[in-house]
Design a protein around this nucleic acid. Sequence first.
DNA 1: TGCTACATAGTAATCATTCCTAAACAGGAA
DNA 2: TTCCTGTTTAGGAATGATTACTATGTAGCA
Lengths: 166, 166
Amino acid sequence: MNLSLNDIRQKFRDCGLKSTPQRASIYQALVNSTAHPTAEDLFAQVSPTYPMLSLNTVYYTLTVLGAAGLVHEVNIGHDRARYDANLSPHHHVICQGCQDIIDVMDSRLDSLAPPTGLPKDFDITSYQVAFRGYCGACRQSQKSIATSPSGQHPVSSYRRIVWARV
Amino acid sequence: MNLSLNDIRQKFRDCGLKSTPQRASIYQALVNSTAHPTAEDLFAQVSPTYPMLSLNTVYYTLTVLGAAGLVHEVNIGHDRARYDANLSPHHHVICQGCQDIIDVMDSRLDSLAPPTGLPKDFDITSYQVAFRGYCGACRQSQKSIATSPSGQHPVSSYRRIVWARV
DNA sequence: TGCTACATAGTAATCATTCCTAAACAGGAA
DNA sequence: TTCCTGTTTAGGAATGATTACTATGTAGCA
Ligand SMILES: [Mn+2]
Ligand SMILES: [Mn+2]
Ligand SMILES: [Zn+2]
Ligand SMILES: [Zn+2]
């Protein structure tokens, strides 16, 4: 998207948000990314420019921007939260190997019929499709992941082949 | 589904899993539920029968059953993990208010065309649709939730109106 | 230029989940 | 049936992402 800092200041004003250098930088890093970064990713990216920046501020900023509707949280499991500033309706493909999240803009998915058999007083406000699978790189290394890393408590190795669902 | 403990022992044998009273009870509680309970929900339900049961065992059991393909993890945000032993293909409706998860069996959703525009070497293995909205009860109380609960750091109240996405 | 409410940073706390370990047990072999 | 061995369990400690607390700083406005 490549918004300038001025564009961002304007957008913040439009949303009634205070504009601070930290907040603008965090948002800029997010809106110019398609990687759906974590809070810590953003912290790492902005830190060099603002060495005093605290991770706490990144979380607070993401929360405020989320409440303003400029940022969405993306959940792909119970690991860490991922964030997305792409507001156009879209869906995601998630690699079960490297946890990469790729945007899917496929208009056929944007008008699914409301599901049948719901309690009649349930009010659906949105939906999302989550595709899962393996990217090219992770498909290669599949075998080595499948063969358990030996010894130890099996939990850690098991967890990554439990399919996350929504 | 209402599986008996004997049915369950048989199913465990078929999957090459050891059958223990704890494991069977945990699985029985899950498979006979449509509520997509948390690990702690299951712990609370089975505890009266097995007072020595540890929450740790519930997590371990869910992991093992997940690896065996008998249980799926359901992610609706970054709160706690929810579990599902309903293996038939289905989707979910999630209430943003009370976090209830309702099964959606709508065959029209079970054969979506593969999304366009993906890297050609990406191998999609599954997908899920997550509908979000508000159940009847939560729709009533919407207004009182919307008006912020006063004072304090706004984060906690903000967080629950950030829409989780997948 | 001041005021004031909101933002920041630093530190401590939370809490779901995982790790570690010794003891108990299930299931197969003898 | 009894024994053996690898798995499972229970409990307590550790982890780590996120949230809470709080004093100081600052953006936006009159
Ligand atoms: Mn996206
Ligand atoms: Mn379900
Ligand atoms: Zn990958
Ligand atoms: Zn509800």
